[in-house]
């Protein structure tokens, strides 16, 4: 079952200037997400390459990381692991939101869910709904 179960309340005043790192290799999707997030008051950086994205994420500049699981060079799961491993990433303030269309076996997914702050299926929500969701993540 897909996890679109988190309610999406409309938040009137999302924190402006919060930084989002969008790790997504499908250009059309990142374009849509960046558009909506920027409109919602976020500063968005898009990186389609997994290896580069990991290095960028480890700079700890971001409040939110949107992480696709199927990205080139270093996979989303590897990125997640590296970001949660304190020997590799001593400090990380960002909340990690998995955004994927990939269907995981439940055991794998449980593992991901335990390490990420949220797990979203991209096909289940529109960009606007994504922004509403990100607004709720503090």
């Amino acid at each position: 079952m897909q996890s679109d179960d988190t309610p999406i309340p409309e938040t009137p005043n999302p924190a402006p200037g919060r930084k989002v790192l969008c790790i997504e290799d499908e250009h059309f999707i990142s374009e849509l997400y960046a558009r909506s997030l920027t409109k919602g008051g976020y500063e968005v950086t898009v990186i389609p390459d997994g290896a580069k994205a990991l290095i960028e994420a480890q700079t700890d500049k971001y409040d939110i990381i949107l992480l696709d699981l199927m990205v080139p060079n270093v996979t989303g799961i590897e990125i997640l692991r590296a970001l949660r491993d304190t020997t590799q990433t001593p400090q990380l303030k960002a909340k990690i939101i998995i955004t994927t269309n990939l269907d995981q076996r439940d055991d794998v997914r449980e593992d991901i869910e335990n390490n990420a702050d949220a797990y979203l299926v991209k096909a289940e929500l529109t960009p606007h709904e994504l922004v509403n969701f990100v607004n709720t993540v503090q």
Partner: peptide, 27 residues
Amino acid sequence: VSFVALSVHELRTPLTLLRGYIEVFEE
């Protein structure tokens, strides 16, 4: 069998985009 999972992934990407563009148009 996870061929199904892969196919689903491929179907969902255009769906995500369609829903996204429709929403942009609506707005």
